[in-house]
Design a protein around this nucleic acid. Structure first.
Length: 863
RNA sequence: GCCCGGGUGGCGGAAUGGUAGACGCUGGGGACUUAAAAUCCCCUUUCCGCAAGGAAGUGUGGGUUCGAGUCCCACCCCGGGCACCA
């Protein structure tokens, strides 16, 4: 109860709009009465509205968070008012680098810092009056949560979707960890902006490429911004083409396989290119070319990817000395080695068709290689390279075909001879899933010997069809998953949070946790330094030292909200069925390809496992725009243009902040913060207050049960009820607010104010400014929370005006307007227009040639 | 280079192909007040005009249409994404 308690038992009794008193009062009221609890097992229709949960950084809530969160909160409150069982949850994506870096610096456990930050975030979020169901809060670092993150990993592992590979990865010496491709921007780390380099390290990799086609396909069925769908499409990067097998001049060296999207240009292939890392390069290099090739390979190996992919630079390459045989015409083509061909895509080798590929063209010109035109431009233009449509030429047997036809025919002909086949390639790479870090989910995997693995396989049914192995110093290690029952595998306490620096995480130094006797049946363990427990199910093992990336916990959190305390499953089948997937997911566009692709991948795997009932997790997605600083620049500490929600709340209140964030402009737009603008919405709220209460804090005597609005204002009220509802559904909060302002300006001018009208206003305003709406609702003597008062309805009959204003144009120019009864005919209007003093001069002495009448709006008279 | 999104007053923005600039901010004037704050009223795209009124006007240039901020074509600028993926 607030300190000003007293007469009104259900509200504060402050005299003026004292938001600092009102807002905490209602927040604690909601908390105590569990107003926002979503009910499992309800018979009501549901509405699930999801925010992207935040990483609880030490800096606290940024003004961008409440923008999206206010939008979803308005919708959640609106849907509740309409009688739906609303699930609106929040949680913490709390594993991550900043907490770990803080731990490295201070020596305190990252969990401590993380929990402090969460407390602060929770306070700030509650101060904004968001209607989250706090009983469903999740925290990705909580063992009862990450137990299921690990469990899902085990499902992936069991299905052969997780494997270990030694591969070149981005290594950041400063952060002492590897980073995913997506975490590297222009050769520097996204976090911290440190330089990165290539290193070969043993890594866990998830086979997301196995789902490339499904991930692409599923985009057709979701209601997402087009730009985001296109970004994912481009990221997956499907291309249809063919693998073509070239013979080698020296048949003893085998064959050379290339991928091309344009098999129709096979006659135009004048040379081949292998990536410097291609395994055939050493055999194909002739002794005479050996020194050149070696030097070139060495040079490219030291190049960063940034240098290698810099388009501005000249192409480089060397001749191998060998030749391949074109399978279509047996011509002899030289084999070159060049770094513009990437080992990671296709087969790492290409057939170069300089006439019709810009990159090949550039290379051919640089090294004076022949260029043969095989596609004719429709206009006969001789210009090369030519990548457009046209007919095939200089290709005996195929001349005259349109290129797509030739592509099919040549592919089929090669396939018939066993020299090629149609294939599909994707740019999407498997997902590098491990980090050499402490502050992440440990992998529930123990490395064991082959013998022990075989033993385990004889007593366990949850191992993958093919064992996951890794060879080190000639010894093969087998990855043995912990049984489900042994989860969660929690992090041990460590002495230092600093990565080992050798590519292993700080966990590698925790011998007692790391080197163990493992019970293969139960997953129980004892330190290897202790005597081996008796029983033949105990084997020697070493735990995996990598941890999972931050993306892991956020891949499935929307499912845990459905049934967050369930100890037996990620969520019960009933909850998964009832709540289904989110009806709306709101979050920043910066996650367009990472989080949103990874989560879709996991969801599809869970679908295939029969755990979730749908194959796409996010049916409707919306990106809120970014709020820029006052100076129109991105907000940042260094620019000093950061807006802190706490300051705004102190000065204007949470309701004003919520309203202003929504009034700033369209939700999806990027828009600058204007510190003066908030005055406008704050004045509006005070105006609402004054319409309801006097300066003494008593009910405004202007309000009466008997009063009657003027016809125009009555219509405006119904129009506003209609528009606010529609605008909320369409996420057009800015126009909903301006409509309420228009209504209030009109109500203010009315002589009497019928009580039902002002109660409607409060119910419309409640999702936007919930504290004020609750307070005034109670102070006007209404019982219960305004949230249980439903949503006002409008009467369509009241929307129809009795008279209309018609704009009169003469020859398309606006010349005046006339007022006419609703049923006025075109000729009535023409007569009215001719009589109108503003219009008549423009009609004088001229014959009316034609009129165009837009019903109820406009009459255009052509003379 | 390629793919998206966007250019409207001093500012944020509003406009199913039908009165461009709603709503709000800023600025100016006025009322109330001893004064201030708060509140209320009027004005606030540009140009011409004392006014009535007129003309121009939604990045630029064309086009379609009775009528274009909105549709089409070309271009300029800003923002985002991708970038030797054969």
């Amino acid at each position: 109860m607030s300190q000003c308690g007293g007469f009104h038992s259900m509200a504060t009794n402050c005299k003026d709009y004292d938001f600092l008193q009102i807002e905490p009062y209602w927040q604690s009221f909601w908390e105590k009465s569990k107003s926002f609890r979503a009910e499992n097992g309800s018979t009501k229709p549901k509405y699930y509205i999801l925010d992207m949960f935040p990483y609880p950084s030490g800096a606290g809530l940024h003004i961008g968070h409440p923008e999206g969160y206010t939008a979803t909160d308005i919708l959640a409150r609106y849907k509740r008012a309409r009688g739906l069982n609303v699930l609106h949850p929040i949680g913490w994506d709390a594993f991550g680098l900043p907490a770990e870096q803080h731990a490295v610096k201070t020596g305190t456990h990252p969990a401590t810092n993380t929990q402090n930050n969460i407390v602060n975030f929770r306070r700030q979020i509650k101060a904004l009056g968001f209607s989250y169901d706090w009983d469903r809060e999740v925290d990705t670092t909580d063992p009862t949560y990450f137990r299921w993150t690990q469990w899902i990993f085990l499902q992936l592992f069991r299905r052969g979707l997780a494997y270990v590979d030694e591969r070149p990865v981005w290594w950041c010496p400063e952060l002492r960890t590897v980073l995913a491709n997506e975490e590297v921007i222009d050769g520097r780390s996204e976090v911290g902006n440190f330089p990165v380099e290539r290193r070969n390290l043993r890594q866990w990799v998830l086979r997301i490429t196995a789902y490339a086609e499904q991930l692409l396909d599923g985009l057709k069925q979701v209601d997402w911004p087009d730009s985001t769908k296109r970004m994912q499409e481009a990221w997956i990067g499907r291309s249809e083409g063919a693998e073509v097998v070239f013979g080698l001049e020296d048949p003893s060296l085998g064959k050379l396989k290339v991928f091309t999207t344009r098999p129709d240009t096979l006659f135009g292939c004048t040379y081949m290119v292998l990536a410097p890392e291609h395994p055939l390069v050493p055999q194909l290099t002739t002794p005479a070319q050996q020194p050149l090739v070696d030097a070139y390979r060495k040079k490219t190996a030291n190049k960063s990817d940034l240098e290698r992919t810099d388009l501005a630079k000249e192409k480089s390459g060397v001749f191998s000395g060998s030749y391949a045989i074109n399978p279509i015409n047996n011509s002899r083509v030289p084999i070159w080695i060049a770094d513009y061909v990437l080992m990671g895509y296709g087969t790492g080798a290409i057939m170069a068709v300089p006439a019709h590929d810009e990159r090949d063209f550039e290379f051919a010109r640089q090294f004076q290689l022949p260029i043969t035109r095989v596609i004719e431009a429709p206009d006969g233009s001789p210009e090369l390279p030519y990548a457009g449509d046209g007919k095939v030429v200089n290709s005996p047997g195929y001349d005259g075909l349109a290129w797509p036809e030739a592509k099919k025919k040549i592919t089929a002909d090669l396939a018939a001879r066993g020299l090629g086949k149609g294939t599909v390639n994707y740019k999407l790479r498997d997902w590098l899933f491990s980090r050499q870090r402490y502050w992440g989910e440990p992998f529930p995997v123990v490395w064991v010997s082959e013998t022990d693995y075989r033993h385990a396989a004889s007593v366990r049914t949850d191992l993958p069809a093919e064992p996951v192995t890794f060879t080190e110093n000639g010894q093969v290690h087998y990855a043995l998953p912990l049984p489900d029952a042994a989860l969660p595998l929690v992090l041990p306490d460590v002495k230092s949070y600093l990565p080992s620096g050798t590519g292993e995480s700080p966990l590698a130094n925790e011998t007692a946790w790391l080197e163990i006797w493992l019970n293969v049946v139960t997953g129980a363990s004892v330190p290897a330094s202790a005597p081996r427990p008796s029983g033949n199910e105990w084997i020697r093992g070493r735990r995996e030292t990598n941890t999972m990336p931050q993306w892991a916990g956020s891949c499935w959190y929307y499912l845990r909200y459905l049934d967050p305390q369930n100890p037996r499953a990620i969520a019960s089948p009933e909850a998964l069925k009832y709540w289904d997937v989110p009806d709306l997911y709101v979050g920043g566009a910066e996650h367009a390809v990472l989080h949103l692709l990874y989560a879709r991948f996991w969801h599809k795997v869970l679908f295939d496992l029969g755990i979730v009932p749908q194959n796409e997790p996010f049916r409707r997605l919306f990106h809120q725009g970014i709020i820029l600083g006052e100076d129109g620049q991105k907000m940042s500490k260094s620019r000093g243009n950061v807006v802190n929600p706490d300051d705004i709340i102190r000065k204007y209140g949470a309701d004003s902040l919520r309203l202003y964030l929504m009034f700033l402009g369209p939700l999806e737009a990027m828009k600058p913060w204007n510190p003066q603008g908030i005055e406008g919405v704050h004045r509006f709220l005070r105006k609402v207050w004054r319409e309801c209460l006097t300066e003494e804090g008593t009910i405004n005597p202007r309000l009466s049960a008997a009063g009657q609005l003027s016809a125009d204002t009555e219509r405006l009220l119904h129009e506003t009820i209609r528009k606010v509802g529609e605008d909320i559904e369409g996420l057009r909060f800015n126009t909903a607010i301006s409509q309420m302002m228009i209504l209030l300006n009109a109500l203010q001018k009315e002589t009497a104010l019928p009580r039902p009208a002002i109660l409607d206003v409060l119910r419309l305003l409640a999702p936007f400014a919930p504290h004020l709406a609750e307070e005034l609702w109670a102070r006007l003597g209404e019982s219960g929370s305004i949230m249980s008062a439903g949503w006002p309805t409008f009467d369509p009959a009241k929307l129809v005006a009795t008279s209309i204003t018609i704009v009169i144009q003469v020859n398309g120019k606006h010349r005046g307007e006339v007022t006419a009864p609703v049923g006025a005919s075109e000729s009535d209007l023409l007569a009215l227009a001719s009589a109108n003093p503003k219009v008549s001069p423009h009609l004088a002495d001229k014959a009316v040639k034609r009129t165009i009448y837009v019903k109820g709006r406009l009459l255009n008279i052509l003379v």
